[in-house]
C-alpha cells in the first residue's frame, strides 16, 4: 500500500466521484429527475449545463439520476454474481468429485449461450423490473466468477496449510472461509472490477434495447434511447452517456489493473 501509481490514483478518484454522485444524486442534481423544465433539446446554457432532453427535462439531472440507477444495478448485480459464483466455485473445488462435475458442466452449458441472448430470452417472459434485472444479470454472470473461483480454489486446496487444517479436523465452512477465501481474495477483487464494468455495459445495453430500466426512470442506456432521434439532426444529447460510461469503465479498469499487478508477485509472476 506504500506506493500507488498515478494511473490507479486517477482511477480511484474518478470512480469515487461517480459513486459519490450516485449516493448524493438528489442533493447535487439541479432539477428533478422527471421534471419538465424547458423546451425540447435546448442547447447547453447557464441554467441547463448539458441542455435539455427529448421532452424538455434537464439533461444534467437526468445524467446524475441515471448514473445512480446504472451504478446501483451494476453494483447489486456484481455482488450477487460474486457471492453466488465464489461460493459455488469454492464448494466445487473443495467437494470435488460428482458435485464438481455437475456444477462445472452446468456452467459450461450456460456459458455456451451468449449472455445477452439468454438474457433476452428470459426477459421475454419475465416482468422487466429492477430486481428481476439484477437477478438475471447477476446469475448469468456468476458463471464467469464460478470458473475463476473454482480454478483459484483448486490450486489453494492442495496446499499444505489447507491439508493441515483438514488434519486438525476443521469443517468445510472453515476451510472455505478461513483458508481459501483470504488467499483467493486478490484475484477475485481484480476480477470484480472487470465484472462491474461488464454489468454497467450490460444494463446500459438492455435499457437501450428497451428491456432494462423502464421510463420515466432514468439510466445511462435509457438516456441514449430517449435522445437517439436527435442524432440525425445533429443533436448530441445521446452521446453524453458515452462519455460517462467510458470514463467510469476506464477508471475502474485502471484500479483493477493496479490490484492485479500487485497480486501477480504472489503467484510468482513478473509484476511488481
Amino acid at each position: 500500500m506504500k506506493y500507488i501509481p498515478l494511473s490507479a490514483l486517477v482511477g480511484l478518484a474518478i470512480t469515487a466521484a461517480y459513486f459519490l454522485m450516485a449516493l448524493f444524486a438528489p442533493v447535487i442534481s439541479p432539477y428533478g429527475m422527471a421534471e419538465v423544465v424547458g423546451s425540447v433539446w435546448e442547447p447547453s446554457s447557464a441554467e441547463h449545463l448539458l441542455g435539455t432532453d427529448n421532452i424538455g427535462r434537464d439533461l444534467l439531472s437526468r445524467m446524475i439520476y441515471g448514473g445512480r440507477t446504472t451504478i446501483f444495478i451494476a453494483t447489486a448485480a456484481t455482488i450477487l454474481s460474486f457471492t453466488t459464483g465464489a461460493i459455488l466455485g469454492f464448494l466445487a473445488a473443495v467437494l470435488g468429485g460428482l458435485w464438481d462435475q455437475v456444477l462445472s458442466r452446468f456452467v459450461d452449458l450456460l456459458m455456451s449461450i451468449p449472455t445477452l441472448i439468454f438474457a433476452l430470452v428470459v426477459l421475454s417472459v419475465m416482468p422487466v423490473t429492477i430486481p428481476v434485472l439484477i437477478v438475471v444479470m447477476g446469475l448469468l454472470d456468476s458463471t464467469r466468477v464460478f470458473r475463476l473461483a473454482r480454478a483459484v480454489a483448486v490450486d489453494i486446496n492442495v496446499m499444505d496449510f489447507v491439508e493441515a487444517a483438514k488434519l486438525r479436523g476443521e469443517g468445510r465452512g472453515w476451510i472455505i472461509f478461513r483458508e481459501i477465501l483470504p488467499n483467493a481474495l486478490s484475484p477475485l477483487v481484480a476480477e470484480m472490477g472487470m465484472r462491474f464494468i461488464f454489468m454497467v455495459l450490460f444494463v446500459s445495453t438492455l435499457s437501450f434495447l428497451g428491456l432494462g430500466v423502464q421510463p420515466p426512470g432514468a439510466d445511462w442506456g435509457g438516456i441514449v434511447k430517449e435522445n437517439k432521434d436527435g442524432i440525425v439532426y445533429g443533436i448530441g444529447a445521446a452521446l453524453y452517456p458515452a462519455v460517462a460510461i467510458a470514463t467510469l469503465a476506464i477508471s475502474v479498469n485502471l484500479v483493477a489493473d493496479w490490484i492485479l499487478n500487485r497480486t501477480t508477485s504472489l503467484k510468482g509472476g513478473r509484476g511488481g
Partner: peptide, 12 residues
C-alpha cells in the same frame, strides 16, 4: 470500455 450501441451513435 464503451458499449457497442454508443460507438454506433458516436460514429453516426
Amino acid at each position: 470500455s464503451i458499449p457497442e450501441f454508443l460507438i454506433g451513435y458516436l460514429l453516426m
